Amino acid sequence: MSDHKNSAVTEAAAIRLENVEKTYAARGDNGAVTALHSVDLAVPEGNILGVIGKSGAGKSTLIRLVNGLERPTTGRVIVHGTDIAALSERDLRDQRRSIGMIFQHFNLLSRRTAFNNVALPLEIAGLSKAEIRKRVLPLLDLVGLADKADRYPAELSGGQKQRVGIARALATNPRVLLSDEATSALDPETTAQILALLKKVNAELNLTVLLITHEMSVIKAVADRVAVIDGGRIVEDGETYDVFTHPRHATTRRFVSELTGTALPDHLLARIGPIPAPDKRALIQLTFKGEGANQPWLSILTRKLDMDLGIIQAKVDHIAGKPFGTLVVSAAAGRDQLVALQREAATLGLETEVLGYA
């Protein structure tokens, strides 16, 4: 697990959770439930941090703590130097103007046009019609909906509704944007467009974004940093490329393998065992990064070692804009051959892992 109290990150953090625990009281026959355990997490100023976990892992509780919809049982939730849990209800309402929120199901008012949905938080804040118009029209232009200002939600596609939701979240000039599964109700093409828009507003407005998701592809597309949550605990966090290329926790490895294609097919997994045998071959995963992702590693290793290597699976991808690839090969299971392969791979800058024998 990485160090969640890295001082360089924490000092420049827009959002900090310090030793946060959240327990829900017993209800009826159900006992008390602890949704978050000793969570330490920092979101650097101007970064996009993605929090990923399965359903029930504690993601939604975490984001509700940041916007003050829930208060921690213990610990502190600090947004730009303000302890959210210590605020009165009145001060919390004021604080929320600096925290934008976008939702999975858009939460638009059906009887309001796109313009008036975006205008709603400004009306609540007491701005004049002229001030509202001056703010809303550029936001609709920013999210690509300048020509849809007078359309109602029923007349908009899912992606367009989410763009309205993003514009509304930006209406009060927030410094922090919270995204709660904002793309999970959208098709892949629309998801890509919305993620590109989030990246754009992050860069152009210098917004800090905390993004909750259960999809590693979302993390890969936009996040500078990632935190993996499992059972209410942050089990791993760090820069996206580092976490993808060196996943340490079992939960992280499962998420990464689902996306990078490093998970072996079921028919092969059923035949793999941990013990070598004369009639079995070793399955070795080679990991290569950076410019090395473009090299013909199978040919290079076969030639250098004079070894028969079979290709089982291969994939090259880009994580946080940098190449990253995996290659699974089969080789003779003799100890000397495996040692020679691992030594030569290390010399070439490749990482190796023996997955088993089949």
Results as ranks from 00 to 15, higher is better:
residue 71 R to N: 14
residue 282 A to K: 10
residue 224 D to F: 13
residue 321 G to I: 03
residue 228 V to E: 07
residue 141 D to W: 03
residue 53 G to P: 02
residue 105 H to G: 00
residue 289 K to I: 15
residue 109 L to W: 14
residue 19 N to Q: 11
residue 85 A to I: 12
residue 272 I to E: 03
residue 110 S to W: 09
residue 55 S to Y: 10
residue 282 A to F: 09
residue 44 P to A: 06
residue 56 G to R: 03
residue 318 H to E: 03
residue 272 I to F: 08
residue 130 A to C: 10
residue 302 T to E: 14
residue 75 G to D: 05
residue 300 I to G: 05
residue 249 H to Y: 04
residue 85 A to V: 12
residue 218 V to M: 05
residue 150 D to L: 12
residue 24 Y to N: 08
residue 236 E to F: 11
residue 317 D to T: 12
residue 136 V to I: 01
residue 26 A to T: 14
residue 227 A to H: 04
residue 279 D to Y: 09
residue 345 A to F: 06
residue 310 G to V: 14
residue 344 E to S: 12
residue 3 D to I: 10
residue 208 T to E: 08
residue 125 A to C: 14
residue 76 R to T: 08
residue 182 A to N: 03
residue 89 E to C: 05
residue 209 V to H: 02
residue 139 L to N: 07
residue 35 A to M: 14
residue 180 D to Q: 07
residue 292 G to I: 01
residue 268 L to M: 06
residue 342 Q to L: 14
residue 296 P to V: 08
residue 76 R to S: 03
residue 122 L to E: 12
residue 249 H to Q: 10
residue 256 V to E: 07
residue 139 L to T: 08
residue 282 A to S: 00
residue 142 L to M: 11
residue 311 I to H: 15
residue 223 A to S: 04
residue 63 I to L: 11
residue 154 A to V: 11
residue 332 A to P: 02
residue 28 G to A: 05
residue 160 Q to C: 14
residue 245 T to F: 03
residue 98 S to R: 09
residue 11 E to Q: 13
residue 31 G to C: 13
residue 201 V to I: 12
residue 282 A to C: 04
residue 80 H to T: 12
residue 53 G to F: 05
residue 178 L to R: 12
residue 21 E to A: 13
residue 1 M to K: 10
residue 182 A to R: 05
residue 34 T to S: 13
residue 133 R to F: 05
residue 136 V to Q: 06
residue 334 G to P: 01
residue 223 A to F: 10
residue 237 D to T: 01
residue 106 F to G: 05
residue 354 V to C: 01
residue 96 R to T: 04
residue 25 A to H: 08
residue 277 A to K: 12
residue 113 T to L: 04
residue 143 V to F: 12
residue 97 R to K: 13
residue 72 P to E: 09
residue 257 S to D: 01
residue 10 T to S: 04
residue 203 A to C: 07
residue 174 P to M: 10
residue 134 K to V: 00
residue 313 Q to M: 11
residue 254 R to A: 07
residue 74 T to N: 15
residue 196 A to P: 00
residue 341 L to H: 02
residue 329 V to Y: 00
residue 285 Q to A: 10
residue 275 I to D: 06
residue 349 G to L: 03
residue 351 E to R: 01
residue 158 G to N: 11
residue 5 K to P: 00
residue 222 V to P: 02
residue 260 T to V: 02
residue 154 A to D: 15
residue 321 G to A: 06
residue 164 V to L: 00
residue 77 V to Y: 05
residue 115 F to S: 03
residue 18 E to V: 15
residue 357 Y to E: 01
residue 255 F to K: 10
residue 313 Q to S: 12
residue 184 S to C: 03
residue 106 F to H: 02
residue 65 L to Y: 01
residue 144 G to E: 00
residue 328 V to L: 07
residue 21 E to W: 12
residue 203 A to N: 03
residue 48 I to S: 08
residue 307 M to C: 09
residue 14 A to K: 10
residue 209 V to Q: 02
residue 70 E to Y: 11
residue 89 E to F: 04
residue 156 L to C: 10
residue 73 T to R: 05
residue 180 D to R: 15
residue 14 A to G: 11
residue 91 D to K: 01
residue 322 K to P: 01
residue 21 E to I: 10
residue 119 A to S: 12
residue 313 Q to K: 09
residue 277 A to H: 09
residue 301 L to D: 07
residue 136 V to S: 05
residue 109 L to M: 14
residue 13 A to Q: 03
residue 227 A to N: 04
residue 314 A to Q: 13
residue 258 E to F: 09
residue 289 K to S: 11
residue 247 P to Y: 06
residue 160 Q to Y: 09
residue 147 D to T: 13
residue 339 V to W: 14
residue 3 D to N: 14
residue 103 F to A: 10
residue 40 D to H: 06
residue 96 R to H: 07
